[in-house]
């Protein structure tokens, strides 16, 4: 008797679930189609595809290319993380332009970076979007040679490339090869 009741309720749960899921899918898809900025049902989500400039050229730079640019002083490296993270360790040739307070650093950016300079932005973590946001803002400001080093800090540090840490409040920089 009890088993029958549970079986009956399970059957009811199954068809009800089907109705609820179909209803949600229909409402969700119709609402999405009705939005002014419709989200495509399928999109390319790889970092490389997201970081493609209007010219269809990828904004992503490889670790080796970045290392060469840093060694040759061929690019301005911008660390998009917070000043605290930057102080704890950063790529040796990098300046700190925290994306979260980018407006405060605008003058510094314009003074420090010539229009035709190569710029490499980075932050830390596979899902970090600070460097991507910073790079896109720089492109929109007119800088044309902007690249992003994905998951930059971790990859650079793990490769054993030259880094620098800021020691205490005096902002004294300590180099580590």
């Amino acid at each position: 008797m009890k088993t029958d009741r549970i079986a009956r309720k399970t059957w009811r749960a199954i068809w009800q679930s089907g109705v609820i899921i179909i209803l949600s899918a229909v409402v969700g898809l119709l609402t999405n189609q009705g939005r002014s900025n419709t989200l495509p049902l399928v999109a390319e989500w790889s970092p490389e595809s997201k970081l493609t400039a209007d010219s269809m050229e990828s904004l992503v730079i490889s670790l080796e290319e970045a290392k060469t640019l840093c060694s040759d002083k061929g690019a301005v490296f911008l660390d998009a993380r917070s000043p605290e993270d930057y102080a704890q360790g950063h790529i040796r040739c990098a300046q700190n332009i925290p994306w979260q307070s980018f407006d405060e650093y605008l003058d510094r950016v314009f003074n420090m970076i010539p229009d035709d300079a190569w710029i490499v932005t980075y932050c830390d973590g596979e899902t970090c979007s600070l460097s991507e946001d910073l790079a896109k803002e720089l492109v929109s400001m007119g800088y044309e040679k902007v690249k992003v080093l994905l998951n930059g800090w971790t990859r650079w540090f793990e490769a054993g490339f030259p880094i620098e840490v800021v020691k205490n409040a005096s902002c004294e920089k300590h180099r580590i090869s």
């Binding site: 609820i20 949600s24 899918a25 409402v27 969700g28 898809l29 989200l39 049902l41 399928v42 999109a43």
Partner: peptide, 12 residues
């Protein structure tokens, strides 16, 4: 499945 998951489950 990323975009579909962002479109349908919130309505669910």
């Amino acid at each position: 499945l990323v975009n579909l998951t962002a479109i349908i489950p919130p309505w669910l």
